[in-house]
Amino acid sequence: MICPHCGHDNLEGLDNCEQCLQDLRALDVPVPTGGLQKHLMEDTIGQVPFDRLVMVGPQDSVARAVSQIKAIGIGQALVVDGGRLVGILTERDLLYKLAGREADLRQVQVSQMMTPNPETVKEGDALRIVLNKMSVGGYRHVPIVRDGRPVGIVSAKAIANFILKYSALDF
């Protein structure tokens, strides 16, 4: 890595030039090559259509949450307490924690079934950040928050559709 200030040939990845101590951090930031890559690195989550939202409280019954989820035809509800996101209740939670048990859903609280403190993103985050979180954590839905308050949810399917849209234009 050649220092643009003094021309010293540094090892790749150094933060500062060994000779003149100039900051080199801006030099090895990956640069998108174009097309879809560029969209993934520079477009923000706000540019992908958000999924519809169902919000429930942690003290609500699972029966109530399930009927709201079913009514709008999605697979998860955000759990909100005092306006702040405290958990997410997904189909996966219901499959793994509830299926096969004979339970009266009106007696079970959302807080007992939800996944607490889910990973979140912000509207201004680049798409690669949500792609990273989905891949590393295995999530299919990541809530979008603004100052701790949920404003949307982005799904793996929405990201896949975004990639498909731009891959059709990309050769």
Binding site: L131, N132, I163
Partner: peptide
Amino acid sequence: ITYLAEHFPKEALNL
């Protein structure tokens, strides 16, 4: 998603 993130690490994993 996992395949894309693993094969395009510069775009996804290496923030």
